[in-house]
Amino acid sequence: MEAKVANDWRLRGQRYRLEGERCGHCGAAIFPPRDICPECGKPAKTPAPLSGRGEVYTFSTVYNAPEGFEPYTPYTVALVKLEEGPVVTAQLTDVAPKDVQIGMPVEMVTRRLRTHGEEGTIVYGYKFRPRVGA
């Protein structure tokens, strides 16, 4: 697959730092950005950071990866329910598949998602891992 430089670039706020939106009408946290609040249906275009803290809602360890992700198998993907409410699809990292459990507290980190071959760009984005420290 060709490196989609502009596509990746457009998503840098979301991917690098999990930037969502906050609805000015009902206060809902929104991720990914939709510009229309999924809770109250009103316009919601104010960018807002999310804490990156959440817990595993469900997970799966992938043995057959799509093109571009094969170098990383086996890796675990999950739905992570963020403290603020939204659910995010993301990889888990720094954890062995056998140690993953539903309900496990996790935090967001920025990691390499993939590269576009040897010469193309390196794509970075959010993943989640078991919380470190306090």
Partner: peptide, 11 residues
């Protein structure tokens, strides 16, 4: 962008 882009397969 928000599912497949994270390396998730359809399976």
């Amino acid at each position: 962008e928000y599912e497949a882009g994270q390396g998730i397969s359809f399976v």
